[in-house]
Amino acid sequence: MHIAYSTRSVGKAQAFEYWTDLICDVYVGLDCDCSERSRFEADIVRFDTSQFRLSEISGSAHRAVRSSKRLARSPNDDVLANLQIDGRTSIVQSGRRVELCRGDLAFYDASLEYEIVAESNFRTLVFQLPRRTFSERYSEIGSAVGHKLDGAFGLARPILRFLSEVPNASEEAGVNRAILEQYSVDFLRTAMSLVAPGQKRSTSAQTEACLLRAKQIVEEHLSDPEFNREQLAVLLGISVRGLSRLFSDEKVSPSDYIRLRRLEHCRRALLDPKSTARTITEIAFCYGFNDSAHFSSVFRGAYGQSPRDYRFALERCR
């Protein structure tokens, strides 16, 4: 689901003032300027997500500034990431300037002053996330400011390609949006580890990328009851001991991670009105459990209720 806003909904004389008010409502307090206000056009499409704000912005050349006065009037502690889809923009913050071309990504900090300049017609995806999304792993988010992740860089290409498809994927029928959002957060964390020079972090960029790949493999194999940590290690090309080290910062073992992902998918299926015709056993077997009694036991251990009671309680609330 998305919400669209456009300067075309008002007269040309009011378009730029409308845009300035709109951008402040959607993001953070900003002052905007444009050399050709009478010809200015812009659009925002906001996508419905739970873990972060995602918007696609397109429009004419203009300048947006988060000044000290704006910081005082509308404080905000979020971290933002701009992924350039078309055109060129520049971001200036903390004395550093980064130029974004098509396919590039850069982070900036809403708690500090910054300036964004779109030099011509442009289209940008903006991810706005709570600071804790990154501060749990990275000690100095500011070191990522003023550095871009080049879309031509080998390891960056699959990350940025995935992020660029998030708006379209979020609108597709049958897509598990919770998983899509979690992958997006994981990719953005990995992007920060790649873009921040000298960043103090618990794992290297290569480890972040490997962990992300491990999680993708798990999602792809949940329906296989035989899938386990040994098979995951083989598919990653590392030892079981190396796999355990890979998951050390996740505070969960690889085997427990696989089990928890199976349970979470089952829990969501029990919540889904489209799955009311499916039996609990069918749902359990769909996600790799092959024993109903065992599934009921581990589900109760994770969520405090049997699958049957969990589903019944939800049905009574509807």
Score class of each variant (00 low, 15 high):
residue 43 D to G: 04
residue 136 E to K: 08
residue 173 A to C: 08
residue 236 L to P: 02
residue 174 G to K: 10
residue 60 S to H: 04
residue 196 A to V: 04
residue 7 T to S: 10
residue 39 R to G: 05
residue 241 R to F: 06
residue 104 D to Y: 00
residue 34 C to A: 15
residue 276 T to K: 11
residue 148 K to D: 00
residue 316 R to N: 09
residue 191 A to Q: 02
residue 137 R to Y: 13
residue 262 R to W: 04
residue 53 R to N: 14
residue 173 A to H: 09
residue 220 E to T: 10
residue 103 G to Q: 09
residue 113 E to Q: 11
residue 303 Y to T: 06
residue 65 V to Q: 15
residue 245 R to T: 14
residue 62 H to L: 10
residue 109 D to S: 11
residue 77 D to Q: 15
residue 265 H to R: 15
residue 156 A to F: 00
residue 196 A to L: 04
residue 85 I to H: 04
residue 67 S to Q: 12
residue 93 Q to N: 06
residue 244 S to K: 09
residue 235 L to M: 14
residue 237 G to W: 06
residue 302 A to T: 04
residue 284 A to I: 05
residue 46 R to V: 13
residue 114 Y to V: 02
residue 179 I to Y: 07
residue 74 S to P: 02
residue 279 T to M: 03
residue 302 A to Q: 11
residue 301 G to S: 13
residue 99 E to T: 07
residue 263 L to D: 00
residue 148 K to Q: 07
residue 240 V to A: 12
residue 154 G to N: 08
residue 89 T to P: 01
residue 208 E to I: 01
residue 22 L to Y: 09
residue 222 L to A: 07
residue 86 D to P: 03
residue 202 S to H: 14
residue 21 D to P: 00
residue 84 Q to N: 11
residue 292 S to I: 06
residue 237 G to H: 09
residue 57 I to W: 00
residue 147 H to M: 02
residue 246 L to G: 04
residue 52 F to E: 01
residue 58 S to G: 12
residue 186 D to G: 05
residue 171 E to V: 05
residue 39 R to V: 09
residue 211 L to F: 12
residue 224 D to E: 15
residue 87 G to V: 06
residue 100 L to H: 00
residue 274 K to C: 05
residue 311 R to S: 03
residue 236 L to D: 03
residue 318 R to Q: 14
residue 66 R to N: 07
residue 80 L to H: 10
residue 82 N to C: 14
residue 29 G to I: 01
residue 189 R to Q: 13
residue 221 H to T: 05
residue 151 G to P: 03
residue 122 F to M: 04
